[in-house]
Design a protein around this nucleic acid. Structure first.
Length: 118
RNA sequence: CGAGCAAGCCGAGCGAUCGCGCAGACAGCUUCGAAAGGACGUCUGUGAGGAAAGUCCGGGCUCCACAGGGCAAGGAUAACGGGUAACGCCCGCCGAAGGCGACUUCAGGACAAGUGCAACAGAGAUAUACCGCCUCCGGAAACGGAGGUAAGGGUGGAAAGGUGAGGUAAGAGCUCACCCGAUGGCGUGGAAGCGCCCAUCGCUGUAAACUCUAUCCGGAGCAACACCGUGGUGGAAGCAUAUGGCUGGCCCGGCCGCUUCCGGGAGGUGGCUGGAGUAUAUCGGCAACGGUAUACCAAGAUAGAUGAUCGUUCAAGACAGAACCCGGCUUACAGACUUACUCGUAAG
RNA sequence: GCGCCUGUAGUGUAAUGGAUAACACGUCGCCCUCCGGAGGCGAAGAGUGUGGGUUCGAGUCCCGCCAGGCGUG
């Protein structure tokens, strides 16, 4: 079982924002890039513009949950950043999950490519 | 029953599956290791608030400076008595303002120590005389001149105590009665204060203007600080033996070579939660609060742990997330409950 | 997390507690020009982030909030 590490350094975030591939929906934004490691590394971000600490925590938890439940279907060896947007807080969870899988399919991160189209 | 006022309390509950942080245990299983043991895993326990928020006050704790102390500056507070570790907080009480009332609000010391300010209007803003009133002189009169006065008019937030009577040429605390205010005296109360058929005085407002009086305050903050470990301990310039620097101002005292620029400058562990602690009972106190006894241990993360799905109940859940820890204040907030009291209506 | 600072027209700045909050640029209208620019003349545009308090009177003084910004390992 592979372990997903977390991205912590500010320089890693800035590197992905500049060089990574992106995909955007009203529910979230995704940055990703191959990292030449055996495992994936995940970064979660919620800006202060989204609201107070409760709303930002809620957005991060929903993004972590949608990543965790679909982790087995993802390809390995990538750095991924999930950025929360306004609908991450207001939308329902099923829509967020649908949007997450569509963005992953668009970036070619799903392990079986035909299973990504929901 | 309706309207209101005050205080207190709660702020979604229960269950199932998957997932996360911390603590403890581990017979066995997987893996690293020679072993001790570690990791994964399994089990058990536990896991955000009344405001965790704003960072506005007060402390604990840590370091810096200190033998220690004095002065100045700056800041804060402001009726009185109590509570507290302390407070700018709380309780009680006094005064003032508001409300029919329950009750609420108040930076509530001193402009009668000194200085300043008071635009515009108004004759005049802390001292005055525009219109007036009165007397005398001149004049046929209109009016003019000299003087007295501050009752009336007008302006203003404020015009020099207020009302009435006497008095007078007209008037005026000029005199008297009552009222208001200040100071002193006496009585009363623990004190602020309250009262008096006592005496003297009549003094504009503003101190959230300077200021004065009384009391308090060394500075910085867990990104403090300590330890392990890594790197470095190099170069240039300047001042220098009581000069200079530190003691964030000065002096006595104390300590030391000092200052500026350039270069270099992974990380980890502790601090980290048992405390002015919580609950119950009882005693003292009007109350805030305090004493005693018994029981209990309730987050400790480090990119930062509480989410997803489903069922069900109330009847649809607001404001909102610990980051060293406490006591307060302020601000945000869907609603639910309890108790005391007031006013109105009806009934008795 | 901690420690601080600042809010005035669209923008940049003024205003000793005292009348209707001033100036410049910008905007709009008119003149000039074949048209535009430049120039000239004129006008509109704020109630001082917000809620209270002190005062006769507050942009200014005091208190509570709100928004924005800065520093710090």
């Amino acid at each position: 079982m592979k372990a997903t590490q977390s991205l912590k350094n500010n320089r890693d975030f800035r590197y992905l924002y500049r060089k990574g591939k992106t995909a955007v929906s009203p529910y979230m934004a995704v940055y990703c890039r191959k990292n030449r490691l055996a495992c994936n590394r995940l970064g979660l971000t919620a800006s202060v513009k989204l609201g107070n600490a409760v709303k930002r925590n809620r957005a991060r938890r929903r993004l972590r949950e949608v990543y965790r439940t679909n982790e087995a279907r993802l390809a390995s060896g990538y750095d991924i950043i999930l950025v929360a947007r306004a609908r991450t807080i207001t939308g329902d969870y099923a829509s967020i999950q649908r949007s997450f899988l569509r963005l992953m399919d668009k970036l070619g991160l799903l392990r079986d490519s035909e299973g990504g189209a929901l």
